[in-house]
């Protein structure tokens, strides 16, 4: 059995240096569409028409992006004329109530943050990406962030999925069982506004319709580092970015 020990040592330390340094390995993030200037207003309107979920809004000759609605269908990335520019970052957590309206958890939580994840009808991708944070390449333990199995120990409720009807009660019970202060993260397009499922008879259309959400992590799914950025933002070690539109505008 000692060969496992040797095997592990031989492979060396693989963890990212994020947040100390920006992680730039290829494929850590699918990137995101960004506001793009076109030659004419018509082209901007055509670019916006490419988007099946109205995440692109034409304003003059520019096409602006409401990232919280984006479901990563990539229709604005390739295949069509009038494509948007994409950048390859992953720091895109937003405050749910608008820029500057988020109060981070106090300093005592900086190196000891316990996260409770609730799968409220997720497609498996966001959940999978949260799970990846525990693998050696991201290793969120080194930052003092831990997953916890019980809501009694949890400081952060991380919701994935559009909140299916059958998960509404378990989700609320988990929330109520958590001590205060607590923060709620809506991770992924589905948890933000229902994503492709929207509001339907079995889908509440996002965590915000059930719980007071604090931070939004857009993406379908957001890559692990985007979720890590959000968890760092919970305690104020990183700042949420400015948002394109308010959450009320989505529903």
């Amino acid at each position: 059995m000692s060969f496992w020990f040797w095997h592990g040592l031989k492979k060396g330390v693989r963890s990212t240096h994020y947040p100390r340094k920006f992680e730039s390995a290829a494929g850590v993030s699918p990137g995101r569409p960004v506001a793009t200037e076109f030659d004419s207003a018509t082209e901007a309107v055509l670019a916006a028409a490419n988007c099946p979920v109205d995440a692109i809004v034409a304003r003059g000759s520019a096409a602006e992006v409401k990232l919280e609605r984006c479901i990563y269908c990539q229709h604005c990335h390739y295949g069509n004329p009038h494509l948007l520019e994409w950048n390859s970052d992953y720091e895109w957590t937003m405050a749910a109530l608008g820029p500057g309206k988020y109060q981070p958890l106090p300093g005592a939580y900086h190196r000891s943050l316990h996260v409770m994840v609730v799968d409220a009808g997720d497609c498996g991708a966001c959940l999978h990406e949260v799970k990846q944070l525990n693998n050696p390449l991201y290793n969120m333990h080194r930052l003092g962030i831990f997953l916890t199995a019980t809501p009694r120990f949890a400081d952060v409720l991380l919701v994935v999925g559009p909140v299916s009807e059958n998960m509404r009660v378990p989700l609320l019970k988990t929330y109520e069982a958590m001590p205060t202060p607590k923060r709620i993260l809506a991770v992924g397009a589905c948890a933000i506004n229902g994503g492709v499922f929207g509001r339907a008879f079995m889908s509440a259309g996002g965590a915000a319709s059930v719980l007071p959400v604090d931070l939004l992590v857009p993406g379908d799914p957001p890559p692990p580092l985007a979720i890590l950025h959000a968890l760092l933002a919970v305690t104020g070690r990183k700042n949420p970015v400015a948002q394109m539109a308010s959450l009320e505008g989505n529903s």
Partner: peptide, 24 residues
């Protein structure tokens, strides 16, 4: 070690096709 293999494949998918789970 298995998790590293999986993450490397997710990154390879993303690099190749633009999405870690091959959407779109």
């Amino acid at each position: 070690q298995a998790a590293i293999i999986e993450e490397e494949l997710l990154r390879a998918s993303c690099k190749f096709a633009g999405h870690r789970y091959l959407f779109g």
